[in-house]
């Protein structure tokens, strides 16, 4: 369905690539998670894939057709939810959706129904400038769905939302997938990715460091780990992969010398695998 081949992007034009030789494929009806810390190049890739950023080097193909040859009608097929809410502040929530819907030449969804789905029905007639950050985030998400797209690009769709609202959004994402929608999910929230994605790719410093289904990644890179909380100039937390000699040695040292508060064995999470592969945390 979507193929990205040897993608590069250089903002400065001085050979410092924000995206460096990235390739992946997304199958129809799949939720593809693009995971990485801030500044890893996730949004850059999404922006190139949506045509917001000019393609410099590489290929982005939709059913074999290159993004730079797509006409405006391509946008009838896709929906994009941005990380930073970008709404017409002087329009109400309802007007933001209504006027946006009017730009499409395909049947669109009822703005009021969408507002109800994301929990904004009561604020439908309030200006977007009066919305909280979470409300704006939900409105941007609803806007991405207005044209009932076949491909959805979601950039941190649950960021800044309370757990209950975030669950509501995740439910809608799952429903869209069941309807056959292909979803490109950009996030640094590994728990959301693990819950939603069929396939994930870890991105670090503009490069993909691993790409597979969450289960396969766990099988391939996951090691049983131990999480230790101990007191040393305040509360410290550390995860040890006991299969590794270095970690085992350090773990023994801490258990023997420091004041331990809790010890838990745990299955490796995507976050831990990411840390293991890149040496970086996600947040």
């Amino acid at each position: 369905m979507i193929q990205v081949k040897n993608l590069y992007h250089d903002y400065s034009g001085k050979g410092k690539h924000a995206v460096n030789d990235i390739s992946f494929e997304i199958n129809k009806g799949e939720i593809f998670g693009f995971l990485g810390p801030s500044g890893a190049g996730k949004s850059t890739v999404q922006n190139i894939m949506t045509g917001l950023l000019k393609l410099q080097k590489g290929e982005v193909l939709y059913q074999g057709k290159a993004i730079n040859q797509m006409k405006n009608s391509f946008y009838n097929e896709i929906g994009v939810s941005f990380e930073h809410p970008n709404l017409y502040a002087k329009l109400t929530g309802y007007e933001n959706l209504k006027y946006y819907a009017g730009l499409f030449s395909v049947p669109t969804l009822d703005p009021m129904e969408l507002l109800e789905r994301v929990g904004l029905l009561e604020s439908a007639n309030k200006r977007a400038s009066a919305y909280s950050k979470g409300m704006k985030q939900r409105l941007v998400f609803a806007r991405a769905l207005i044209n009932n797209p076949n491909i959805l690009f979601l950039d941190e769709p649950t960021s800044g939302l309370d757990p209950s609202t975030a669950n509501k959004i995740k439910e809608i994402i799952k429903e869209k997938q069941q309807d056959g929608c292909t979803i490109f999910l950009t996030t640094h929230n590994m728990f959301a990715a693990e819950e939603l994605c069929n396939h994930v790719a870890f991105l670090n410093d503009g490069k993909i460091v691993a790409s597979d289904s969450p289960r396969n990644l766990k099988l391939q890179y996951g090691e049983n780990s131990v999480k230790v909380e101990y007191q040393k100039d305040g509360l410290k937390k550390k995860i040890f992969f006991l299969d590794k000699e270095e970690d085992k040695k350090e773990f023994n040292e801490i258990v023997n010398k420091e004041k331990i508060q809790t010890i838990h064995t745990q299955e490796a999470t995507l976050e831990q695998i990411f840390i293991k592969l890149t040496g970086r945390e996600l947040a």
């Binding site: 917001l52 405006n72 391509f74 994009v80 970008n86 709404l87 017409y88 946006y100 730009l103």
Partner: peptide, 14 residues
Amino acid sequence: NEGSIRAYQISPGG
């Protein structure tokens, strides 16, 4: 400033 131009950019408006 409000970023709404980005939303228009990925619409079929042109």
